[in-house]
Amino acid sequence: MSRNDGDGEEDSPKPDDKSTASISSAAHEETTQVNALNGGLEPGNFLHIDHKPRLLLMGLKRSGKSSISNVVFRKMAPHETLFLETTTTIRKEAMHSFMDFQVWDLPGQIDYLDPEFDAESIFGGVGAMIWVLDAIDNYMEPVSRLTETILHLQHSYPDIKYSVFIHKVDSLTEDFRDDTMRDVRQRITDDLYDAGLENPPITYYGTSIYDHSIFEAFSKVMQGLVPQLPTFEALLNTVSASCKFEKAYLFDVYSKVYIASDTTPIDMKAYELCADLIDIIVDMSEVYGWDRGKDQQETDPSKAVASQSAESFVSNIKGYHLYLKEINRSAL
């Protein structure tokens, strides 16, 4: 249950995996769950003992914030997000991998810069902010709102990392998508520069809920908040090197966000494949993971995949193999 156990197990697939050692390549996923709040923190995790790091989803109304959080954290099918109502209260989603993340989905219609607003309750302890920007709408207003927000928060909370999701890019053509992203970036940088803020800590992602880009972008944002990232990367490098894996990922099963990967270049397609494998395993575990009465385990389908160390192997995808091993799971 402690963090050290989790890391230790990470090496354990190696001996099991002799049969795959000669394989030209294997993608290796590890699933992770940890109960970080209840004293299960390793010494290295000293940064966030006091509070859960928080991730804010902000943006104008109808930019797609709730759709994103539903697709990523509630496994909603993308086409179903059409029916979502406007968000009126702050919605909180939690992720328990290695550290307790909280993702807050903030309603877009509230002016958070109002001095009467209790800013500390929302922005205190925020690790990162994701600004969702509708790429197919006029983006002048959101850009100016974002720069206002950043400038406003800059003094009180200088540690917040900003990410801009240029969202709904699936409906733009390839060329137009690049132009839009460049233009948005340019405008934000210029505006902030004019206001005296140079090199703001902002990263930009083009996202869509209809493909894996949203998971990819979320992964990157999360990784910026994981203090153990270098350790994970080093461990995964060791595993891949000794097992001749082409690529190894450390996944959070429920959100399909990857917390770390080895340091070889990211292959988006491999990531998508791994995410889809997790999907199929979760689905099958739900169908066949029912309680057969032999044990007293809970029948909650969402826990079916995670009750004991699960593993999966897909062989011979054009000479490639795919291996998944569950590392640890939440005791929640």
């Binding site: 395993i281 004991q308 011979n316």
Partner: peptide
């Protein structure tokens, strides 16, 4: 998604075996 990864026609054999070992 496999065929997207391998760039092959979906009708060909996409994999030889999938095995899942789960607790139950």
């Amino acid at each position: 998604s496999l065929s997207k990864y391998t760039h092959s026609s979906t009708a060909s054999h996409p994999f030889t075996e999938i095995a899942i070992k789960a607790p139950r």
